[in-house]
Simulated scan of single mutants.
Amino acid sequence: MLLKEAVNVKDKIEEILRIGNIDLVNNAHTLVIFIIDEKDKELQAFAEQEGIAWATHSLAISFKLEWVQAIRRTLWNFFQKYTELHSNVKSFNFFEMEKQINNRVDYFLNSFFISYTTYKDSLIKAQRELVENLSVPIIPITPTVCILPLIGAIDADRTEIIEDKMLTEISEKRIQTLIMDLSGVAEISSDHIYRMIQIIDGASLMGCKTVITGLRKEVVRKITHLGIKLDEDVKTLGTLQQALREYFSK
């Protein structure tokens, strides 16, 4: 009866079991028992467990919603049959039963969605932090010298990440020399050039000398047109290899 109610989900049961190791039919039995036996704590824990499982495997939330609503309808089909068979039982309060059943199904759905979104947000945050770390990789080559190779476009978001990552790493790792390789930077606006210079000045205030390598002619042209002069403590070299040879030899 449940499979007949869940029209769009029944063909996905095997796929969901394969992808997420989630047995929808057995889980439906578990859910119904928790509802009927009024086990609210177990119901919430089960909902949270399900939310994490669905978020982890990025399963379509629409299937879960349809499945639970199909469970609700199936439950009421059975209760309808029950009332028809026990119509003379005065102790049975249909409306109270309706309230309890629907409240617990809604409670399960609410707990599931909270768990799903919370875990999904944590995954997104972790992925964002991973992307940020990969976009601004500060690589130590000696206890006091590190390399920051930058690749791609430098925009407002990335300059903010660069500033936060640079100043944090300089403070925590006591970096004395930071080799910033810009050979992979193809595009940077005038505003962001100014911002990068400010970040380099901030590093200097913390006692870290910046060595810039691999400046492309397009970037150099913009710097000269803007009339920007680098601080005397900032050193420039043609290539990263030159910097590595110099600081490794030291």
Rank of each mutant, 00 (worst) to 15 (best):
163 E>H: 07
31 L>G: 01
9 V>A: 03
25 V>Y: 08
223 I>Q: 03
74 T>C: 12
56 T>V: 13
35 I>S: 06
13 I>H: 01
238 G>Y: 09
149 P>T: 03
19 I>D: 05
134 L>P: 01
133 N>R: 12
20 G>E: 07
24 L>A: 09
66 E>W: 03
176 Q>Y: 06
2 L>W: 03
136 V>N: 00
210 T>A: 04
121 D>Y: 13
104 R>G: 03
163 E>S: 13
88 N>A: 12
216 R>E: 02
73 R>C: 11
37 D>A: 11
250 K>W: 05
90 K>Q: 10
53 A>V: 08
9 V>N: 01
110 N>Q: 15
82 Y>F: 15
44 Q>C: 10
22 I>V: 12
218 E>D: 14
88 N>Y: 09
203 A>I: 07
25 V>S: 04
78 F>W: 10
162 I>A: 04
27 N>C: 05
109 L>N: 03
132 E>T: 10
183 S>F: 09
130 L>I: 10
93 N>L: 07
140 P>V: 01
111 S>R: 09
69 Q>N: 15
248 F>G: 00
116 Y>P: 02
42 E>A: 00
201 D>S: 14
57 H>C: 11
76 W>S: 07
233 D>M: 12
97 M>V: 15
96 E>N: 13
69 Q>I: 14
246 E>Q: 10
111 S>G: 11
24 L>V: 10
188 I>C: 08
15 E>D: 12
211 V>M: 06
145 V>I: 10
244 L>K: 06
34 F>N: 10
13 I>C: 03
215 L>C: 11
173 K>M: 10
167 L>N: 00
23 D>M: 02
73 R>L: 14
5 E>V: 07
32 V>T: 03
126 A>P: 02
197 I>T: 10
1 M>R: 00
132 E>M: 09
66 E>V: 06
